[in-house]
Every structure is written in structure tokens, then in C-alpha cells.
């Protein structure tokens, strides 16, 4: 795909006041519109909420977007959310790039808003750049071995193993000591009910 064919939409989240109390998302969106390949840039109070996700889907349809950048929180937080969102609108889920302007910007630069704004713009520019060179990918489907292992036979491990077993799952409960029971088995009566621990 050549650069001319790129149609990128940028969606800047306010995250309530988490982002918007430090920087103006509209300024980030305005800057994003100047970036090569970007055809639209919008803001929303909560990009991850239904209105935010619907806005992304609507813009994908209205502007025939083929790439999406969401400037919001960490990939560890909402990458799956927005991948699903663009996939529902017909895009390859990997054509969405998340620009982390919350954990790695407004939350750590609350006292220098101007430089936080500059950083947000450049984080968005980098995400736009990255998504411009992305190739479509298909998730790998792997088989699942229908068995579970619980490491540690204390009260937590026993509880997990029993629940897994009750769900019909073959469960291996691995215990280092000669007996399961862990610390709990050493206790006399237990609070607050004062019943025995075994």
C-alpha cells in the first residue's frame, strides 16, 4: 500500500479528566489532522465506552478509514478492546495502534502540561507512523489441552483444584511437601468462625 492510499483516523480520548485535566485532547486531534495519511481526528470523553467505540466505527464507515490510531491508555489496558472495535467495523484488528498518552504521559507529567501536550502529539505521530507501515495479520489459532495444573496444595491451591475438578477438568495438584494442606493444616481453629482448619 502506498502512502497516498492511507486513510488514517485518529481518536483522542479524554479519559474523563485523566487525560483532559492535563492536556486538551482537541489540540492533539487538531495536530493529528496535519499528519501524513490522517483524514480525520476526533475526541471523546471515554473512547472505550459504547459512544466512543461507536464513533470510531462510524468514522471508519464515513471516511473509509483503513487504519486507526486510538490515543488513550496503555496497550496493557485496552488494546483488545479497540482491536475488537475496528474488527467489528471490518478492519484487520492489527490495523489499530494504541498511543499511550495516559500512563506514559498525562499521569506522569501532570505538572508540566505544555510539555505533556507536546509529548502526546509526538506519541500520536509515532503511532500514526507505525500504523502506516503495518501489514495485515491473522491471529494464530492454537489447540487447547483440556487439563489444568495447580502448583501448591495449600488452601488456595486446594480451592482452585476442587473448582477445576468440579468443572470436569482433569487437574494435577502439585505439592512440594509430603502432604497437601499447606500452612492452613498447621493452624488450630481459624477466625472468625473458630472452626478447625483441616
Amino acid at each position: 500500500m502506498t502512502r497516498e492510499e492511507l486513510r488514517i483516523g485518529v481518536f483522542v480520548c479524554s479519559c474523563g479528566s485523566n487525560i483532559a485535566s492535563v492536556i486538551d485532547p482537541a489540540e492533539v486531534a487538531a495536530y493529528a489532522r496535519t499528519l501524513p495519511g490522517v483524514v480525520t481526528a476526533r475526541t471523546n470523553l471515554y473512547m472505550c465506552g459504547d459512544p466512543g467505540q461507536n464513533a470510531i466505527k462510524d468514522e471508519i464507515a464515513a471516511f473509509k478509514l483503513n487504519r486507526v490510531v486510538v490515543a488513550a491508555c496503555s496497550v496493557r489496558m485496552h488494546e483488545p478492546t479497540f482491536r475488537n472495535c475496528v474488527a467489528e467495523a471490518g478492519l484487520n484488528p492489527f490495523f489499530m495502534e494504541l498511543a499511550n498518552i495516559r500512563e506514559q504521559d498525562t499521569w506522569v507529567h501532570a505538572h508540566e502540561p505544555e510539555r505533556a501536550l507536546l509529548k502526546a502529539k509526538e506519541i500520536v505521530a509515532a503511532a500514526v507512523a507505525k500504523v502506516s507501515y503495518v501489514a495485515p495479520l491473522t491471529p494464530l489459532t492454537v489447540p487447547v489441552t483440556k487439563a489444568a495444573m495447580v502448583i501448591g496444595g495449600g488452601v488456595a491451591g486446594i480451592s482452585a483444584a476442587l473448582d477445576l475438578g468440579d468443572m470436569g477438568i482433569t487437574t494435577y495438584l502439585v505439592e512440594k511437601e509430603q502432604s497437601i494442606g499447606g500452612t492452613m493444616a498447621q493452624l488450630n481453629k481459624t477466625f472468625p468462625t473458630m472452626d478447625c482448619s483441616i
Partner: peptide
């Protein structure tokens, strides 16, 4: 459904 592997 639970197999205990103690001393392991």
C-alpha cells in the same frame, strides 16, 4: 478429576 502429586 483431581490428581495429587505430592512430594513433587
Amino acid at each position: 478429576k483431581v490428581e495429587i502429586l505430592a512430594y513433587s
